[in-house]
């Protein structure tokens, strides 16, 4: 049985600032501070199997590799 899955695909976006992200296919999660952002990202990475990447402007993306 072959497992088929998407790769190099943004699964979720976790941001501390609303204005930095808009539209797109991935759900956007708002975080109040860095600690909450880390926590949400960690939960999502464990659940989805994506890797957290830091765009260094307060936005984290979760990418399936």
């Amino acid at each position: 049985m072959m497992e088929t899955s998407l790769s190099k695909y943004i699964l979720a976006i976790i941001t501390r600032e609303a204005g930095l992200v808009s539209g797109g296919g991935a759900p956007v999660f708002m975080a109040r501070d860095k600690e909450e952002q880390e926590k949400i990202a960690l939960y999502l990475t464990r659940i989805t199997g994506g890797v957290i990447h830091d765009l260094e402007n307060g936005v984290y993306i979760l990418v399936k590799h």
Binding site: E38, V51, I52, H53, D54
Partner: peptide, 8 residues
């Protein structure tokens, strides 16, 4: 690579 999580 770019590794976002502080723990990782």
């Amino acid at each position: 690579m770019n590794l976002g999580s502080e723990g990782a």
